Simulated scan of single mutants.
Amino acid sequence: MPASDPIPVALLHGAGYAGGEVIRLLAGHLDVTLTAVTSRSLAGQPVWAAHPHLRGLTDLAFIAPDDFDPASARAILLAAEHGQAITVVTDLLNRGYDGAIIDLSADFRFRDPGLYPTWFGLEHPAPDLLDAFQYGLPEVFAPYAPGQRLIANPGCFATGITLALWPLARHLEALDVSVTALTGASGSGTRPKATTHFPTRDGNVRAYKILAHQHLPEIQQTLGTHARVHFVPVSGPWTRGIWGTAQLTLPPAVSEDDVARWYEDAYADAPFVRLWPSLPELRYAAGTPFCDLGWTLNDRHLVVGFALDNLLKGAASQAIQNLNRVLGLPEPSGLLPTPSPLPA
């Protein structure tokens, strides 16, 4: 049943692709109400000016960030670019904001501030805040500590790869795995660039940031120091969705039944992980809030497949999962259908 008084939430810097999906999901959420969406460049224009598919779903207009009153929202979702969220968060906290903050950027994902110069080219200006943020991969870290209100939403590749490997990392003393994963053009954001230009991307695949993608430290941070992940990201000729495989050699004592049990135990209570009898297909995961996993084993060689929507489970719907958790709502609220009671 919906809350009698929906909880007011706001979205800051909501003009990008992930922001549009957050708005769409919240429009159908029965327990919260989106009261404000900010954009410096689109202030005063209707939300559908940036997100035409939302026309008729919301009457909200963008407001300038300086016109937003934090006291009007019990929770804030932040979809700023990497490096910008730090300033927004520190300003909110310095002004005494004590509600929940779900940050979709990478600015608070790492525990070690020394990783930021290497992977993002910046010295973190608020390293003392890093420990205050919970890395928000619910399937691994939830339930969060009571009162936890600051969440660092994981990256899209990091979500898929970590969920694909987490059950193995829990049971194997050493994990050495090679990952190849393809992603759609929306993962590069709304700003046009040569690598997302249609004639360049259509009918083509291209590896990039080989063994040096910025999501690697997130993955290693979660899996542990006993895990080594060699990751080749690839741009695919579609708009949204990530599909990939992880390959490794299992110890002789590990059976196919062991692998199946590890995954079933890890995700028995995870409503947004679906286990498939074979490697998953991208088309069934795109447009959904699920991460699909499947595997095949042949003579100790294990291949784990994963598929997810980079804008949903890799960003917006995972942010709603985290929002629900910190607000004390059921995790699937606003993401999965709620059965209606039969009439008396």
Rank of each mutant, 00 (worst) to 15 (best):
V88F: 12
N153L: 10
P280N: 13
P280Q: 12
P277M: 06
D67V: 11
G203C: 00
L11N: 12
F133R: 09
I161W: 07
L297W: 00
T33A: 13
T87E: 03
S188W: 03
T190Y: 13
A164D: 02
P341G: 04
A169Q: 05
I102D: 10
L137Q: 15
D299Q: 09
D31K: 07
P6K: 03
H51S: 02
V229A: 05
V232R: 11
K313S: 15
G56V: 10
L78E: 03
T296H: 09
L297T: 01
C156Q: 10
D59Y: 01
A75N: 08
S105W: 03
P146T: 04
D107N: 04
A181K: 09
L77A: 07
L323M: 05
H13R: 14
A73H: 15
L26G: 11
A169C: 07
A27M: 07
A50T: 14
W295C: 08
W238H: 13
E331K: 09
F108D: 05
F306N: 08
G160R: 13
A181T: 10
I101L: 15
T225F: 00
L336M: 02
H51T: 02
F120W: 05
S39Q: 02
D67Y: 06
P289Q: 15
A266T: 00
L216E: 10
L26Y: 07
L223N: 00
D131V: 14
A260Q: 12
M1V: 06
P199G: 07
D202S: 09
P341C: 06
G114L: 15
H301I: 11
L182R: 04
Y267T: 00
P146G: 04
Q321F: 01
G314R: 02
G224D: 00
T225D: 02
V259G: 08
A15Y: 12
W243K: 12
I86T: 10
K193C: 14
Q220H: 15
L282H: 09
A10D: 11
G28C: 12
G160P: 14
G241L: 05
P233Q: 00
H53C: 04
P237F: 04
G294I: 08
A316L: 11
T190A: 15
L60A: 06
L26H: 11
G203H: 03
L302G: 12
H124V: 08
L130I: 05
R149Y: 08
D98L: 07
P252L: 03
G287M: 11
S278E: 12
P2S: 12
R149N: 12
H53S: 09
W295F: 13
A194K: 11
L282F: 14
V303G: 01
P251C: 00
G334A: 10
R228E: 07
A106H: 08
T162R: 07
W295A: 12
D103L: 03
V37S: 10
S235H: 03
P167N: 08
L25A: 07
D131M: 04
R274L: 15
A169M: 06
L335I: 08
D66Y: 02
P146W: 06
N94T: 06
S39Y: 04
A307Q: 06
I63N: 00
D98M: 09
A43N: 04
A36Y: 08
I86V: 10
R24N: 11
W295V: 10
I101A: 14
G99L: 01
V37T: 13
A158H: 02
G305Q: 09
A100V: 15
E139K: 05
L308M: 10
I219D: 01
H171M: 11
E21G: 00
H171W: 13
R228W: 07
P192A: 05
